[in-house]
Write a protein that binds this DNA or RNA. Structure first.
Lengths: 101, 101
DNA sequence: ACAGACTAGTTTGTAATACAAACCTATCAG
DNA sequence: CTGATAGGTTTGTATTACAAACTAGTCTGT
């Protein structure tokens, strides 16, 4: 009966993970961000940030562009349309849960 | 700077897990519930419900009382004060995140 | 009374995580 | 040319969440 609870079961786990939720939240407002900026904002280690980004990329939620700033590598990340939609859906779902319970 | 994002990192994972979040939500409004009721409401299998409840019990978030209804066993679950507080804190934290972003 | 099905759970097995630590590869400073 | 630093990736490990198998007891039909 409580569809709001049942709905929790199939929530998007990729976004539900706190580290990636933080990433999505940042990326949803900045158009594009580089690796180190994301690291500073989230407090993640490079290793974990890398693997979370890879996971988001594999899901098609972010696009990763490897380029250079002068001669040093620069990794730019931006949310794809699919990623933005998933993030929005996640928020809506969770918001509903918080309201209804 | 975004304390709301940084705060996500140390959110209570025990409650964050969707299955257990659903359990907490139910238990926060019913005083006490039996095993099968919880299973129906959450849609979890018995096995998974059992292990999630054990985890919540080990954390001190729920109290589990094994009794009988007639001759057949009946497991009653209720939220402890600590569990209720943790659930409340989780909600507050998440609500803040949703508002701020 | 006893074979089989059902109730109410727990234990076990397994695949997917998330995090940390080690490891690259290149650039820059002394 | 030696060491430190930047910018990441790969590897290792311990924890998980779920599903499937198992247990223990009760009920039903014959």
């Amino acid at each position: 009966m409580p569809a709001d609870l049942r709905g929790l079961a199939d929530i998007d786990r990729l976004i539900h993970e706190p580290a990636r939720l933080a990433l999505a939240a940042i990326l949803s407002v900045v158009e594009s961000a580089d690796f180190l900026y994301l690291q500073r904002e989230t407090g993640l280690t490079k290793g974990n940030l890398s693997s979370h980004l890879t996971k988001l990329e594999e899901a098609g939620y972010v696009a990763i562009e490897k380029t250079y700033r002068g001669r040093i590598p620069l990794t730019l990340v931006r949310l794809t349309d699919a990623g933005a939609a998933a993030y929005k859906a996640y928020r809506a779902r969770f918001k509903k849960f918080l309201e209804k319970t």
